[in-house]
Design a protein around this nucleic acid. Structure first.
Lengths: 101, 101
DNA sequence: TCAACGCATCAACAAAACTTGTTGGCCCGT
DNA sequence: ACGGGCCAACAAGTTTTGTTGATGCGTTGA
């Protein structure tokens, strides 16, 4: 194995690990349809806020999402570049209605 | 989220989990160049046999590899279909020399 | 200024994953 | 039949992950 690949393995493993949880995949599925704030995700995914906060942190540290503050809301968006660089193409995930905020 | 996606989430999560470990990525990197027996992998990856056996089991249960017995050797091969169905394309991993068997 | 909201973070616990050493089954050569 | 090589599976111990409830900080609106 070349050093180039060896060097990229930790990053690859981190990205795949971020994708290895159903809750996080659910989050990403929502984000494929655009920006979401945490309160929307807690509502749509019916999950506790601290739980989502934890998973969003994992996704952020893997580079899969970016966040943006607006007033008291934190908005999260998908980072397709990192997904693509890991060779991952998120499938055709259908549109999901937004219920909140 | 549609039921179709919801139903595929566990399988997707399993595949990504199988990809979330450096040792397993190392194994897959070897297998992109063709069939390998466990003894070759232990040699190339400098890992204990029981450790590889464990990781190969994870990969197998996720459907990412298939095994074939030949005499006392077990040969493992990559299953690109499952990778593709998860939207994953393994990058251009350079050829690695074989040292063993 | 104060109460309510949105969110991150922490502590504590439970559960799952990984490593290492060991055991035993299968297969081969003698 | 017997010894040895290849491998899966098990057990025990450690580390990592995920969940839940509590706490705290910054923001907003009254």
């Amino acid at each position: 194995m070349t050093t180039a690949l060896a060097a990229s393995l930790p990053r690859l493993a981190r990205v795949f690990h971020a994708l290895s949880d159903e809750t996080r995949l659910g989050i990403l599925a929502r984000l494929t349809h655009g920006e979401r704030c945490v309160c929307e995700l807690t509502d749509e995914l019916d999950a506790a806020q601290s739980r989502l906060s934890f998973h969003l942190k994992v996704l952020k540290e893997a580079g899969l999402v970016a966040d943006r503050r607006e007033g008291r809301w934190m908005y999260y968006t998908l980072n397709q570049d990192v997904l693509a660089s890991a060779g991952v193409t998120l499938g055709e995930w259908p549109t999901v209605g937004r219920k909140c905020c």
